[in-house]
Design a protein around this nucleic acid. Structure first.
Lengths: 122, 122, 122, 122
DNA sequence: GTGGTCTAGACCACA
DNA sequence: GTGGTCTAGACCACG
């Protein structure tokens, strides 16, 4: 997974999502040390400060833990932290927006039932 | 519907949506002259340049028509244009994104059925 | 009130404290616009990014509100936000540390009662 | 007492405090040889350089004595040194800071009396 | 080696 | 004009 430098979404956020996905997929197990800021910056061909910002974000959101002078580690309950955060965002932001769009579109019965089928089968 | 100055969504876009919804609801019928930039800016407590940008956007996308020296008017086929545009965007962009989010969240049965109930009842 | 560039405490934190004190003293009333990032940076003879970091911090802690393209404003409940935050920090961090120090010092009765007198009269 | 790797306080300082407390409690009596850097580092699961830095600090401040080629020993007057140093620091730095914080917080009567109760009962 | 802060300067979208 | 992001490079304390 690589970075889209043209996206409107900040690079540091893309990296954060990237890392969170890796944690959810088990590629970065809880307790494991993550690459140093400098190394990951080199990997992504990105500035050190950008990665640092990502790490600081994940640190204060409880996904990472920071051991002084050693580095960042995936916190033990990282998976739950990510899941709960994403779930909250989904039900508070994404779902309401989605529903409002549906309302404004005034979809007919057919469209609506088709839509639900699509959601169910995915 | 008012404007959220804290949102990440541009204010000129929020105003555009607002106007489109008014057109769809018949408050701004096709052919009608649109409020002046100055008035609308005062209504929304917003900079005139911001409204100007909204009008330029709607003009460019065919929702408005600019009669030189007179002002902006709602184009005759504005309703269809908005509807078709929104529908296309919805099924091409919003829905796929929404479904991917659901996938990534790995919602359980309960969450999913609740989600569908919410969609149906709205 | 000026900045101590030699302090171990980050400059952006010193600026944050400075602003919070101004709010508590009523010099920056709720609803008022704060100086632009650029202006305050010039005032403190500090880099723009440093002030930006301060403002972002105060924004996400609810002391500031950010109106797009216009600037930062003191939020309506800024005073309570600051007070509650400081109080929480005091009782959770400072007070326990202080008590532990007293314990380890094994102060005698005289010292302790004198200490309390000092606290009371201040 | 264990080490908080997330604290902003340097680990070598935390270890120094730990050792001083052991001396005050008599677990490390004056004249006794101090554990080897290697052993202590293993105990605390910490880098040897970190312990080395702690020992250097305690040596410099007179709590330890370094017998060349043998190792570090708790100095004969270590207890008094620690006590006097800590007492001086407490009344010159910690207490004034603590009082200033209370002033800035503008605690009400309830909070203040609760605070004093907590101090007394500890 | 690690993270943390700061600077100077560029570029962007938005009002 | 506003804030927001990113870069490059410096300096620091800590392990």
């Amino acid at each position: 997974m690589s970075i889209d430098f043209k996206s409107t979404k900040g690079i540091f956020l893309q990296i954060a999502e990237n890392i969170c996905h890796q944690i959810l997929e088990g590629k970065l197990p809880p307790g494991e040390r993550v690459p140093s800021v400098r190394d990951l910056a080199a990997d992504f061909e990105v500035n050190r400060n950008t990665v640092l910002r990502t790490y600081a974000l994940l640190d204060e959101s409880g996904v990472f833990e920071n051991k002084r002078g050693i580095g960042f580690f995936v916190s033990e309950n990282a998976v739950e932290m990510i899941r709960s955060t994403e779930k909250k965002e989904f039900f508070q932001n994404d779902l309401p927006e989605f529903i409002q769009k549906i309302k404004l579109l005034k979809l007919n019965e057919n469209d609506l039932s088709e839509l639900i089928t699509v959601i169910k089968t995915n």
